[in-house]
Nucleic acid binder design. Structure first.
Lengths: 195, 195
DNA sequence: GCTGTGCCTTGATGTAGGATAAGAACTTTA
DNA sequence: TAAAGTTCTTATCCTACATCAAGGCACAGC
């Protein structure tokens, strides 16, 4: 049950058995079905969630009413709206399951409690956040200075498991292009025998 | 000397006089001239720097040899390559002064020391990082789903002091467009009397 | 006073990817 | 098993922005 998430934490810092038990006591299991929401625009994000099994997407709805996917998350990833969660203010984002998904969630109070009770906790989440920041920065760079084709190739290289479980429609939205464009790019790559 | 940076910290958490003194003892003052580098591609980022006075830019050189500016930083901001600093591995980024700049810098060892000696420190830097993450996420969103004109208007609204001290060339690079395009956008906005 | 040099503007032309539409293939539901 | 979505593809035309090229203005150094 907690095996994977414990491994996740202990990669960043070490914990006693007691500390891990306290941590577990603050987690709740949550199961949601495909197409159900973990968070909707306008709601305050009341959780940070660790994915035990399944796949979710985090996205905006833009001014034209189109989805803009900011992040996919699969097994062993965390998902939340950090801004909404940390300031406890309404979110602009949706988080929706792309498959039936099993999560371990922690609420704001519990997380603050853990920060006080287990000093290393602050460190672990800071380190996780640092890594997320670096990934996001490199994604911004790619969006600005690479073509859609290069971004697609980078995406399937970086996250090879995701194209197999997520429709192209969603991947196009993540790459910031239309599904039609992605289709054209893929057909070019096939002609060029790159994929 | 330390007045502003102390205010910066105490906005996130409270500190005793002793703690602040320990913090100050680990900071070094650094002055760099316009066009000089704080960090070059290939170097390990050995600092996080708080800007007392001045202005810097952080950028990549892309595959065409063009600058892509990720961030400007002025008074009361921190600047660093978080990825390179935290993993102590070579950076892909340049950080360069746009004006003569006065900084307070802290090195990796000192920061780790402070994290251990002053528990709230971990919290302060986690909170700062959270805010940076949210800003970056909204910038990615804007890059994907707003036009260059909308991004420019948002930029001058969000950072009104920067257009007055930074050449348009640099702002274009931050917005992910050519200087020519920015010039045309500005001339359209003038015609429309928006600015 | 000239002559660079850096920065901004304007114009002509090219191109990646968007918008729209419509059909094919595959899934879900009834 | 038919009906009704979804998803993917292809084709046409269109738009935002890039690229290339030329010229203007302000300021620094000689």
């Amino acid at each position: 049950m907690f095996q994977e998430i414990d491994k996740h934490l202990t990669r960043c810092s070490s914990f006693t058995e007691d500390q891990l038990e306290l941590f577990h006591s603050r987690l709740k299991t949550k199961n949601i079905h495909k197409k159900m929401f973990l968070l909707r625009q306008g709601e305050i994000c009341k959780f940070e969630a660790y994915i035990v099994k399944g796949c979710v997407k985090k996205y905006y709805i833009d001014d034209n009413g189109d989805e803009v996917i900011l992040q996919f998350a699969v097994e062993d990833w965390w998902i939340s709206d950090i801004g909404s969660f940390s300031e406890q203010k309404p979110s602009n984002l949706f988080i929706e399951a792309l498959e039936d998904t099993e999560l371990l969630v922690i609420d704001y109070e519990s997380k603050e409690h853990l920060y006080h009770a287990i000093p290393q906790m602050e460190r672990v989440f800071r380190l996780m956040l640092q890594r997320s920041y670096v990934v996001l920065e490199s994604r911004l760079y790619a969006t600005v200075s690479h073509t859609a084709e290069a971004r697609y190739l980078d995406f399937i290289k970086r996250y090879p498991s995701i194209p197999q479980r997520v429709p192209q429609l969603q991947i196009a939205s993540y790459l910031g292009i239309t599904p039609e464009s992605l289709s054209r790019i893929r057909s070019n790559l096939h002609k060029k025998k790159v994929i």
